[in-house]
């Protein structure tokens, strides 16, 4: 415990006071329970290690959240460099004269006259979830933050330390892949 500002640290109470808050905070961003637990634990450890640098200007919780934010960015960078890169199947020609055109085999198909009826079917939710599961993790992470949890573009960019054009490329790829997946598994079967 050090006293410079008006706030002090009490690591023995961290888990009781902040574990749930930090866990929820993390889940809303990375969506994975196991990963979230690990990140929260790492945050506590990192906090313990850097207690000396706590100046008491911010509350204990704010200080821990600041550490957690760094951990989330690190995690995002890790999934971005590992597997997030190449495995999304492209929908458009990436070079040559027809760069940016639809790949022939990826052209959207007509969904048929029963599409509206199919949208009301209760099984659709399960098919959609399977499709989301198939997304590479970093696409799923950004897509859920944007679509499910209504994070603003600015906030996502800041929290994951990415540019807005980068964000839209990710949302675009996630959505074209989901559209395609729903077409294959639900609308045109």
């Amino acid at each position: 415990m050090r006293k410079k500002g008006k706030h002090t640290l009490h690591p023995d109470k961290w888990i009781d006071l902040y574990a749930d808050y930090l866990y929820n905070y993390t889940m809303a961003r990375v969506s994975k329970p196991e990963v979230s637990k690990d990140l929260v634990q790492e945050t506590f450890f990192a906090g313990l290690k850097s207690m000396k640098s706590f100046e008491g200007k911010a509350s204990e919780r704010t200080w821990l959240v600041a550490i957690l934010k760094r951990k989330i960015i690190d995690y995002y960078r890790k999934i971005n460099s590992n597997k997030g890169r190449a495995e999304v199947r492209m929908n458009f020609y990436s070079d040559g004269d027809n760069q940016g055109d639809w790949l022939e085999e990826r052209v959207p198909q007509t969904w048929g006259s029963d599409a509206d009826k199919k949208m009301e079917n209760e099984e659709l939710g399960g098919v959609l979830n399977d499709c989301i599961e198939k997304l590479p993790e970093k696409y799923a992470m950004v897509f859920k933050m944007k679509t499910l949890r209504d994070f603003s573009t600015e906030q996502i960019c800041k929290e994951l330390s990415i540019s807005s054009s980068n964000l839209w490329v990710i949302v675009h790829r996630a959505r074209t892949q989901l559209r395609r997946c729903m077409e294959d598994n639900w609308f045109v079967k």
Binding site: D20, G125, L128, I132, R179
Partner: peptide
């Protein structure tokens, strides 16, 4: 694509639900 994309937005809105993750 645009027509279907509008449909996809409706599908997301209606079918994407938050898993319960209130606490450890």
């Amino acid at each position: 694509y645009t027509k279907q994309n509008n449909r996809m937005s409706r599908i997301f809105k209606k079918n994407m639900r938050e898993d319960a993750f209130c606490s450890m």
